[in-house]
Structures are given as structure tokens and as C-alpha cells.
């Protein structure tokens, strides 16, 4: 399984910071990608991915999924440079392809 983005779980993102804003929705997508890869949701939006059991293989799953969501290519480096849910959300929001999702 590549990713669960687009599943029912993601369709109703309502926890951990989704305040209904566009940024909140994007954050919920990022969280859902993390949760699908890690197979758990026991992490905060400021947790470092590697400290909660993450590794490069899972990053590939997450970034392939998020890239597909916005119809763009995402560099793995973007994740390594922004290894928390909040940082990754902000980095993606600054990405052109995510404009419609984040604003």
C-alpha cells in the first residue's frame, strides 16, 4: 500500500490542528500521510519523524502520496529539511502546487 491519502480517515480531518482553514486541511493531509506510513497516530505535530520510528523508506511513501495529491513532484530533501508535521505543512504551503490546498 502506498498511502492512505484520500481514504475516509483523511476525508474528515478534524484532529490535531485542523481548524477548518486551508492550512489546517493541508496539515491534516500531512498527518494522514505520516499516520499511514507509520501505522499509528501517536505523534504530535512538532515531533521529529525519526524520533517516533520513522525512516527513509516511509518518507518515500509519504512524499510520493503528497506529491500525487497536488499533482507535482516532491523532493525527499524537502522532508529531511522539515521533519515535523508542522514544518512540512509550512514548507508545502509555500510550494506553488499546494497553493490551492493551503490557501
Amino acid at each position: 500500500m502506498v498511502n492512505d491519502i484520500g481514504s475516509a480517515e483523511v476525508a474528515n480531518p478534524d484532529r490535531d490542528g485542523n481548524d477548518g482553514s486551508a492550512r489546517g486541511l493541508l496539515r491534516a493531509h500531512v498527518r494522514a500521510g505520516w499516520a499511514a506510513a507509520l501505522q499509528h497516530e501517536r505523534f504530535d505535530n512538532d515531533d521529529d519523524f525519526f524520533a517516533i520510528g520513522g525512516h527513509s523508506l516511509l518518507i518515500a511513501e509519504i512524499m510520493a502520496g503528497l506529491g500525487a495529491l497536488a499533482g507535482t513532484r516532491l523532493s525527499l530533501k524537502l522532508f529531511f529539511d522539515h521533519p515535523t508535521v508542522n514544518e512540512l505543512t509550512d514548507a508545502l504551503a509555500a510550494h506553488e502546487a499546494f497553493g490551492s490546498l493551503a490557501r
Binding site: 502506498v2 498511502n3 518515500a60 506529491g67
Partner: peptide, 13 residues
């Protein structure tokens, strides 16, 4: 396997 498993998500999307 891990090196190809890194690539497969990108192949699939």
C-alpha cells in the same frame, strides 16, 4: 529490497 521499495511509491503514483 529497501532501495527499490523507496522508488516504488513514486512509480505507482
Amino acid at each position: 529490497p529497501a532501495a527499490l521499495a523507496m522508488v516504488m511509491p513514486f512509480v505507482q503514483v
